[in-house]
Simulated assay, not measured.
Amino acid sequence: MDVMMTALQPRGGIKTFFRYIYGQDCYSDCNFTLFSPNHGLSEFLDEHLGVNKIKVVSSPEEPLSFIKELRRFLKGRSFDLVHSHGFGAGLLTEVSITGFSLSHLMTAHDVFLDSQFHGGIGSAKKFAMARLFQRVDAIHTVTEDATENFRTFFPNVPGKRLYPVLHGVDTDYFANEPASELRALLGEGEDTRLIGFFGRFMGQKGFRTLVDAIERLKSTGFQPLPKVVTFGWGGYIREDYQYIEEKGLSEHFIQMPGTDNMPSMIKAVDMVAMPSRWEACGLLAMEVLSAGIPLLSSNCIGLREVVAGSPARTFRPGDDGGLANLIRAEAEQSSKQAFIDYQPIAVERFRIDRPAQELRALYDQLVGS
């Protein structure tokens, strides 16, 4: 099967999706071409999936140029299916394939917010988006939460075109990798609790809620005050670390480079904080639960579905007081044994081969195989 994929912002969850899904054996007979801004994407895919498993064709980022170049690329070429990743790519791809006889599958990697459609311009944008979404042959959502969110904002899109498939991760990898020697590297004693933050430095990930929670604990005199270890760069990291400095909390936050071995770093901390404001699907939560490490999670859309039934301690999005209380409780009496007991359940529940096979079945359905 020859699949033409598109992406407009191939970061974070989309890159992880490519890495997890298309490395599965059920796609061994597929040839993938990805029309997307590159920015090191081809090197990432070659490293994790093998050279040219997904051939990247570098695209413009400006919408009109994206449409023009994609139409030009499609002329004279034959594909069995077009698969767009993300709302932006989905809308631009649907415009681009006008006049081509191609089935179009869109994966929704995010959710919609009311703030996106305020005012007259927002209403006009929503109307135009609705018309285009109604033309897409199938829309793949990664949680039931994300499906319901899409239905709420675009109720005129036929329900039969929505295909919810709970995403997954390489659970064996997260279960079996040993912990790193992070504590020794940092020179921290066993009495200091380490909190891992593995999200991007974006408003969606709620990092400042965690900063405010540490400030609350400090103001109450809680000792020993935990230290937060963050990983990676980019986003608003400069602004967020300036925020930490302004609050006088610099000694309680440690910035580490990005890691190529997430399981080892997850297992090296005492707890992971995931204070997200919204998610389409909380992949990090799946990874942490598969690693058997205590998780402090907001109960936001897309994340509450993942942590339901698990031992994760939850709080409302943005509630730094609630998060502070959970950090205190976990520091005073670790719940790690409950997470170790739940780990085999998480490994089976979030195993990647299930969503990979379900998505492949959808591919076959759309091309009539």
Results as ranks from 00 to 15, higher is better:
residue 247 K to Y: 01
residue 210 L to Q: 09
residue 186 L to W: 08
residue 183 R to S: 01
residue 197 F to D: 05
residue 280 A to H: 06
residue 272 V to N: 04
residue 206 G to K: 12
residue 141 T to K: 00
residue 173 Y to L: 14
residue 167 H to L: 14
residue 248 G to M: 11
residue 237 I to E: 14
residue 174 F to Q: 05
residue 226 P to W: 08
residue 172 D to R: 13
residue 160 K to E: 12
residue 226 P to V: 05
residue 267 K to C: 02
residue 171 T to A: 11
residue 194 L to V: 11
residue 205 K to I: 07
residue 261 N to C: 10
residue 240 D to K: 03
residue 265 M to T: 08
residue 281 C to R: 03
residue 218 K to N: 09
residue 153 F to M: 05
residue 196 G to H: 02
residue 150 F to R: 10
residue 170 D to C: 04
residue 242 Q to R: 15
residue 203 G to H: 14
residue 250 S to R: 13
residue 261 N to D: 14
residue 145 D to A: 08
residue 151 R to W: 02
residue 253 F to D: 09
residue 261 N to F: 03
residue 169 V to R: 04
residue 192 T to D: 09
residue 172 D to K: 10
residue 257 P to R: 06
residue 274 M to I: 13
residue 191 D to H: 08
residue 269 V to Y: 04
residue 201 F to D: 11
residue 215 E to G: 01
residue 200 R to I: 01
residue 200 R to G: 14
residue 241 Y to T: 04
residue 284 L to K: 03
residue 199 G to R: 13
residue 239 E to C: 00
residue 270 D to M: 05
residue 216 R to A: 12
residue 203 G to W: 09
residue 258 G to M: 03
residue 162 L to S: 11
residue 195 I to H: 06
residue 188 E to Y: 10
residue 252 H to S: 15
residue 280 A to N: 12
residue 255 Q to S: 13
residue 273 A to F: 03
residue 219 S to N: 14
residue 221 G to F: 08
residue 168 G to I: 04
residue 166 L to C: 05
residue 167 H to R: 09
residue 247 K to C: 06
residue 251 E to L: 05
residue 189 G to N: 12
residue 249 L to D: 10
residue 227 K to Q: 03
residue 241 Y to A: 02
residue 203 G to Q: 08
residue 176 N to I: 01
residue 273 A to V: 06
residue 144 E to I: 11
residue 161 R to S: 14
residue 272 V to L: 06
residue 180 S to Q: 05
residue 284 L to C: 05
residue 261 N to P: 01
residue 275 P to K: 08
residue 267 K to A: 02
residue 163 Y to Q: 15
residue 181 E to V: 00
residue 171 T to P: 03
residue 183 R to A: 01
residue 211 V to C: 04
residue 214 I to D: 12
residue 239 E to K: 11
residue 218 K to E: 13
residue 144 E to W: 03
residue 253 F to K: 05
residue 273 A to H: 11
residue 162 L to D: 06
residue 266 I to K: 00
residue 233 W to I: 03
residue 148 E to L: 09
residue 242 Q to A: 15
residue 206 G to Q: 07
residue 246 E to V: 01
residue 176 N to R: 14
residue 188 E to G: 01
residue 165 V to T: 14
residue 192 T to A: 12
residue 250 S to G: 10
residue 259 T to Y: 03
residue 261 N to V: 07
residue 175 A to Q: 15
residue 216 R to C: 01
residue 164 P to R: 07
residue 210 L to E: 07
residue 243 Y to Q: 10
residue 153 F to V: 03
residue 283 L to S: 07
residue 249 L to K: 07
residue 193 R to C: 12
residue 229 V to F: 05
residue 213 A to L: 08
residue 164 P to F: 06
residue 202 M to G: 02
residue 227 K to P: 04
residue 151 R to Y: 02
residue 255 Q to W: 02
residue 206 G to C: 03
residue 211 V to R: 07
residue 187 G to Y: 10
residue 187 G to Q: 12
residue 156 N to Y: 13
residue 222 F to S: 06
residue 256 M to D: 09
residue 169 V to I: 14
